[in-house]
Amino acid sequence: MLEVANLRKVYGPDPHAAPAVADLTFTVADREFVCILGSSGCGKTTMLRCLSGLIPSTSGHISLRGKPVTGPPDDMAFVFQDYSRSLLPWMTVRRNVAFPLRYKGVDRREAEALTDEALDAVGLAGRGDRYPWQLSGGMQQRVAIARALAYRPSILLMDEPFASVDAQTRSGLEDLLLGVWERYGITVLFVTHDIDEAVYLADRVLVLRPPANVGHEVTVNLPRGRDQVETKAHPEFGRLRGELFAALDGGPVAA
């Protein structure tokens, strides 16, 4: 379980300067799929960087499975929006997926097996020997997801991972993600600015208002085994989407 309590982040030396994240409190249960919805500039990225232990928070408390987060935790994986920059161009797809495992203490044979399995899970079993830049954008993001899966995290943080692929590829990636989420039994915290995407994927959607705090929360009661056509035609989908739209729009306007 991920617990965030009274998280506050101020950049720079002055603790009274305008915060990027202020008084943010929420929890994510094990195996839950939570989407964080916020317009650009509301502090989503800062929040994720604090949660992942990449930058220290100014005050407040973050804990993952009871352990306070002070640096990047062992059982957390991060998928960035910009796949072309987060994959290493000098490594093949296989090596990109496998290299973090060595530093986690996984032995070579097991690393190979985890890599094969992860590449298979994202449908890239035959592409291991290619280089990331020889693949399309959607495939590159699948490599990044495979790398996260092979790491066997208990929680996956995703920072607008599908924001820079085309709509067709995007719905494919959404379904792929739901598939591996169920198969691997992991917790996902997914940041997006797209209302439809949030409702389609999540168990719960938290609306973030600047400076990042939870302004509104909805539970998505749509049945699982979601389908791009059926789920999106569900009356509940339309209702949730309207509610979230109002919540996003109705927040205090940022300066």
Partner: peptide
């Protein structure tokens, strides 16, 4: 690229590995 460093850090690469696997290449 700072994002490459972030990736390496989020996967727990120690400084030595970050130098040989990321900075040098």
């Amino acid at each position: 690229d700072p994002l490459v460093y972030d990736t390496a850090r989020s996967y727990g690469l120690p400084p030595r590995a970050r130098f040989f696997r990321i900075t040098l290449p």
